[in-house]
Design a protein around this nucleic acid. Structure first.
Lengths: 202, 202
DNA sequence: ACACAAACAGTCAAGCCTGCTTGTTTGTCT
DNA sequence: AGACAAACAAGCAGGCTTGACTGTTTGTGT
């Protein structure tokens, strides 16, 4: 009641849970069915949410997808943080490359890829996705520097890290059609050697 | 007539011209409107071809798009061949990187990207696109070796070229949303230096 | 010349997607 | 306890896409 402090299913919680279910379903749908396969009807069905409720929380497909993108960034960040512990002292560079590459060969990346490509030809969508993607890029860059434990002002360090991120993005794109883990591993092995030679460690 | 050898508008020529117009319109539409924006109606209108004629030459959207992919590979090959002359003796590696990067920051790549991503979640389409893309990958790899003038059996040369191609793919993907030519140039500059150190020239 | 096939034009039906609208239930504040 | 707002359910209308169908023109072999 009014005086009862421990009321469970408050509206705020219900709202948050409902929005989360819809966003998760959107991400899953993007991964499985792609951008054009991700219709509002499909999402509502997968989330077990009525069309009315869906439209209540997200008045348009645009709103739903943008929210899902934002949600995606959290998942990406969490994923990365979670794997950062695996790093051992030696072969550190190779380990960092694996963490980064895993980020770009994952369902989360594929969902983001769908948005990325769709945003290229959808002005309204791009307006939401582009700045977000830039922010994620910066965050990932900073995180890579931190994991590698290097100073980006030294030598070509900054460019090398940028190149590394572009590389794993390219590897991720390649993996989306045919996932050749062995090829990826050998390329990363070679790249690690290059970085060991070229990076200016502190 | 039957004996007249120099008849102009033969049916074969008309067919070829019509198919070409439809495929070009498809590629253009993919670049401008993306995968889901590329409807058969849009393509026929852009090509100035009636729906009936379109369906006559390409009985389904699938057939149209697959044909357009094949056509795309020719354009990619031609593009690359055409730019190979720009190579000068010194700064050769940097020049090769530019040629490769241009391949992946071009309308042709963007059209291919749309197909690539669409094929990820469309089994039937992937069956056509995946082997084609693998072939193009091999061709590009061989061509890069030729342009660089190196022996891929030496040292890590093979992996380094692979990494280079994955890198430019990643750069191309990044350019699809926001084309930051300056950033790309500095990354390529840096990478050229790396390759000069790491490649085993013959 | 004639017959047949290919090329082409235009229209149609079925299905789907999006967003809106109406009505009901549940939560919260006074 | 009552009033009000948010949460939710379900169905509907308009627009679009795809592939098919019917009819006409153009090319080709005999």
């Amino acid at each position: 009641m009014t005086t009862e402090a421990a009321v469970r299913a408050t509206q705020g919680e219900r709202t948050r849970a409902m929005r989360l279910r819809l966003m998760e379903a959107t991400v899953d749908s993007l991964v499985e069915l792609g951008w054009s396969g991700t219709t509002t009807t499909v999402v509502s069905r997968r989330a077990g949410v009525s069309r009315g409720a869906q439209l209540h929380h997200f008045p348009s497909k645009q709103a739903l997808v943008v929210a899902a993108v934002e949600h995606l960034t959290d998942r990406r960040r969490d994923d990365m943080r979670r794997h950062a512990d695996r790093l051992t002292g030696d072969h550190r560079i190779r380990g960092v490359l694996d963490i980064l590459a895993d980020q770009f060969v994952s369902p989360v990346f594929f969902a983001a890829l769908e948005l990325w490509v769709a945003a290229r030809t959808d002005a309204e969508l791009r307006e939401s996705v582009a700045p977000l993607e830039r922010r994620i890029g910066r965050e990932t860059h900073a995180y890579a520097l931190e994991l590698l434990g290097i100073d980006e002002t030294k030598g070509d360090n900054r460019q090398l890290v940028q190149a590394t991120l572009d590389l794993v993005r390219g590897l991720g794109l390649a993996a989306s059609l045919t996932d050749d883990a062995r090829r990826r591993a050998t390329v990363l092995d070679s790249w690690a050697t290059v970085l060991e030679h070229e990076l200016e460690m502190s």
